[in-house]
Design a protein around this nucleic acid. Structure first.
Lengths: 254, 254
DNA sequence: TTTTCAATGCGTAAATTTTACACAAAGAAA
DNA sequence: TTTCTTTGTGTAAAATTTACGCATTGAAAA
């Protein structure tokens, strides 16, 4: 990493940033990945700036890989945030001062942030596969339940709200489960995922009927054992069929 | 207008721009508003840069008003374009040289465009109400039928493609007609608008049934006379009801 | 070992929504 | 007056979505 921001921004865009809302699904809850900044006491979404020779999509993938250790995940732009007062939640000046305390006087020399527009990306990852990795800028990297998300820096609470709305829209046309669940899962687990994202309950039998009608799932000869009830079958997505469905679009009508 | 770009960019973001795909509906066709640049022989979407004290949405409205003379129109962000090679279609260097020929040597002094990310906006306007107004940068301002759109500067052809896709999606959840049609219109006119946008035909009777079921249209006691056939009734959107429907979302299921 | 309890697997009937379709009437033009 | 094109209207069939019950499984409790 460079010793000064200036060196970094000689290679990157200053007025545009990119923030990822990373969703995971664990113990029947939707979680979001947040970072605690070094030096200042505040949480935010993982984000970063775009290198000059890198497309915005590439930048999103790079940042996500650096942050979660994951590659090749669902990652789509959903909205670009450009309010004048995006920084109002934590005045920039105060923030810069605190960071200079941490990183040393002169850290910001040659750099003036006039204003930053941020491109919001929505990422869906398999919770168990993620290795949250705090970096040079970050003290801590943690999953939060949506309900518990604290007051974040900048406009990042608004970003999460919009990301969730975007997710709710996209789940209706794309078979999103493959991105949030492990390789093998039961039908009730898949249903709980849908119920959690959409905030509604579905009829067990109708849900199974609809999902199977997409012809993207395969029932395995294995069952999940251990619980005090009838053991449910395990399913998995059939990759080729899934990809065709994702391209053509499904319609989740419940 | 400033005499140098530098003066302008002292007050505006350089690395972010904004381009509007402005759709209008005329003679049963979907049209898009394009500009021909002064100095260089090329067409593009109307766009511009964002002032430092102006939100991105405000900038879009300002640019659109300057360009079309219209205020208070449907205007929504749909995608942000950030490929490294966005300018590949018309190499920036060549473009700058031509512009210096037109605007005078030194026009670009103090300004280096490293790279520009552009936020795409979708605008829907009433064709007859628009007064296309070429500005200082622009030789000509003209409506083009979608099928006839020429090869545009930068990635603007791709922008129109994506804007149309976005429009097709949004027409399914928002009663978009009000933005593209004049105050009063006939049911066949409304149907033709939907058919044009979606590129499909609908049954006349089912279309009327569905649109009336939204409870946002009012049939007037007037008819459109003049054509060699039975005179169709005129309809109009009932504003309050329309706004409630737009907020809650309709579902155009055909 | 037996019983209990909670969750799963499976199929059919009812309700709702979407699609298909035909004929009479209006109005300008021939 | 006739012709021609387009509009206004309602109902039946098809498809989709919703509602719902019972037998079975497997761990835990008795």
């Amino acid at each position: 990493m460079e010793h000064s921001l200036k060196e970094f921004f000689d290679r990157a865009l200053k007025e545009v940033s990119l923030d990822c809302t990373v969703f995971g699904f664990h113990e029947g809850e939707l979680k979001v990945l947040l970072l605690r900044w070094k030096g200042i006491d505040g949480w935010s979404l993982p984000g970063g700036h775009i290198l000059l020779d890198e497309s915005v999509d590439d930048a999103a993938n790079r940042i996500l890989t650096q942050r979660t250790g994951l590659d090749d995940v669902f990652l789509q732009q959903f909205y670009t945030f450009g309010n004048v007062n995006r920084y109002v939640y934590h005045p920039e000046k105060e923030l810069l001062e605190k960071m200079e305390t941490t990183f040393g006087k002169g850290f910001f020399d040659g750099i003036i942030f006039r204003r930053v527009v941020s491109i919001g990306y929505l990422a869906l990852v398999e919770f168990d596969q993620v290795q949250p990795t705090p970096d040079w800028f970050t003290d801590e990297c943690r999953w939060w339940s949506l309900a518990d998300v604290p007051h974040l820096l900048f406009d990042h609470n608004e970003m999460i709200d919009r990301a969730l709305k975007a997710l709710r829209q996209r789940i209706r046309n794309q078979p999103v489960g493959i991105n949030l669940l492990p390789e093998k899962f039961t039908m009730p687990e898949l249903q709980r995922l849908y119920e959690t994202i959409l905030g509604r309950q579905f009829d067990r039998r109708n849900f199974q009927k609809l999902l199977m009608s997409y012809d993207i799932l395969e029932r395995l000869d294995e069952k999940r054992i251990g619980a005090a009830n009838k053991s449910p079958y395990l399913y998995r997505f059939v990759k080729e069929k899934y990809e065709r469905a994702a391209a053509e679009g499904v319609s989740f009508t419940m």
